[in-house]
Design a protein around this nucleic acid. Structure first.
Lengths: 337, 337
DNA sequence: GTGAAAGCGCTAACAA
DNA sequence: TTGTTAGCGCTTTCAC
């Protein structure tokens, strides 16, 4: 483990000179520079990044906090984050928030190991985020509402998305529309449900509590919720799943029971994950501008780091992607099932 | 930014005492400990992880180097890595090797920012890995052969997998079998091709160069390679794609031309990615023990970190997953082995 | 253009 | 049990 000291000694210069030479300062003569570089090479010197960062009180890296490194997550979003991070000459690391306050995420958030962070991890508490956000440590949250001087939020218009999905179902003649919900403490979920309620109301369709099934955003959760709906022996005409993963789990449940989508029941998801277009039938869903969300998030961080004063809230729009999982119900003799 | 100095001062104790108290040393009296903790709380003190790591010359985190954070990659593998890393009380960060020697990956590999690393990133050079691997900085590579004191490799039996795939096709009556290759410098690809050749030879089927198409492991690469095959106007009976992504691209190409899989042509992939069972028809492919590979990789790192002497090579077996993309060709005149 | 020296914030001998 | 102190390896004034 050669240090800069060793390099300086071998090159016969002072430590500071070695440092300047290695970092490409213009005040070092070509000859000295060469000497130092050679010494570094023969000693196989590699700088200690921690020491360097500590001294400079700057890490040049930003963290992306994810629920779980092994996914599923939005690769488009990560791409957006990655692209603008590297474009700005910064490094990006991803870490998981599994383990809550003892997680890697918490460690990187609080211990000054990065210059800023983006949170997309419902399993990390508001408290941790709030505590970590301090002056000059910007955090942007993609999955919650949080008010703090150094916290910025970019969100997708979930209410509108929920409205869009529900309205689409209604316009195609569905009246009995179930909502398979995400975790009830999920911010996204609450907003999507709100959109569902608003669309129902605007179309004078009464909300029926029996058609709200609480699940957990996972594929197996969607599967179980759907089984439950089937077991009730009173299927709705359509189901709005609060995310695609659950919808795909639901498809599986229907397939097992020989219930055809969309002929026997319509379904719609939310997210437009990659799989959505490959399942059978291809899933109609709500698309979020994921790449934009990701790139905007980092962009905001760099603005704050650069000393700009910026807004704390950003909202992006959603679109409906029409595929094959919803049928049209003829309005003639409207009594089904 | 309160430091431990401020905490010590407020608590009226020495810096070392504060440090001990905060780190839960048993030699500190309960009373002192409480005083220190209170001071820390009122100052909103958070330790500087860099300083701590620098002093201890240990980071307690290991890095997972991936080609691209935004995938596609093997989530099962990451799960394996993640599970055993956290089980050992270590932190895990993922970083991308986009950018080669200027990438985040290179930075974390060389600048002593982590205690060990796992490389699954064909776009990072052997040189970087070799340079980074030094005594007490273990690296395990999952995607190449590399000999060095501190480099360990776990690989999947690609030759056997390639053999299995090809043999399966042959046993179902196919003789004209194309190989859509990954990049020719890919280690995995070379081995899979070797398995293909061996199976051909063992079954007395001559290898025909016209049926090796070089592509690049991407979906669009597979699409293009397949288009090329179609344009040749002389389709084989079956195609062995060196990975699933390319096979899925190939399916798309066939679909556009109205060529039915498997009725008009059989295909088989390699990897068993998540999508494989969802495409139409579901893709028969070779499954790798990804979770095991990931968990074994970290396990090895911890053994080395713990001072154990271990083997440098590990090989895991592959299995064939039978789905619907291969038809059986009736043995008109020839008999099966 | 180069060198001496002062820390960045922390841990851990060692001394008291 | 607590305090003093010497660094971890680096960057960066400031003097020459």
């Amino acid at each position: 483990m050669a240090t800069i000291k060793d390099v300086a000694k071998l090159a016969g210069v002072a430590i500071s000179t070695a440092s300047y030479a290695l970092n490409g300062s213009s005040k070092i003569s070509g000859e000295t520079k060469k000497k130092v570089e050679e010494a570094a090479k023969t000693l196989n010197y590699k700088k200690n990044g921690l020491a360097s960062d500590l001294k400079r009180t700057k890490t040049n890296t930003i963290a992306l906090i994810l629920t779980d490194l092994s996914g599923p997550f939005y690769s488009e979003l990560i791409k957006g984050v990655q692209d603008v991070t590297t474009a700005n000459g910064y490094d990006l690391i991803a870490c998981s928030s599994i383990g809550g306050s003892k997680s890697t995420a918490a460690k990187f958030l609080t211990e000054k190991r990065v210059d800023g962070a983006i949170i997309l991890a419902h399993n990390i508490s508001d408290e941790i985020a709030l505590e970590a956000a301090k002056h000059n440590f910007p955090i942007v949250v993609l999955d919650r509402h949080l008010e703090s001087e150094s916290i910025y939020q970019v969100e997708v218009d979930n209410v509108h998305g929920g409205y869009l999905a529900t309205e689409y179902l209604i316009k195609r003649g569905h009246k009995e529309i179930a909502y398979v919900s995400g975790p009830s403490n999920s911010h996204d979920n609450i907003l999507r449900f709100q959109g569902y309620m608003e669309a129902l109301e605007d179309n004078h369709i009464p909300y029926q509590p029996k058609w709200k099934i609480v699940s957990d955003f996972t594929r197996s959760g969607g599967y179980r919720a759907t089984k439950l709906l089937i077991a009730q022996n009173d299927l709705p005409e359509a189901i709005f799943y609060a995310n695609d993963e659950m919808a795909i789990g639901g498809m599986q449940a229907f397939k097992e029971k020989g219930i055809q989508v969309p002929d026997d029941i319509s379904m719609i998801g939310f997210d437009d994950i990659q799989l959505a277009e490959y399942v059978h039938p291809p899933l109609t869903t709500i698309q979020q501008p994921k790449y934009e969300a990701g790139s905007l998030a980092v962009h905001l961080i760099f603005q704050v780091l650069g000393g700009e004063k910026i807004n704390h809230h950003y909202k992006l729009t959603t679109d409906l992607i029409e595929r094959k999982s919803v049928r049209v119900i003829q309005p003639s003799s409207s009594t089904q099932g």
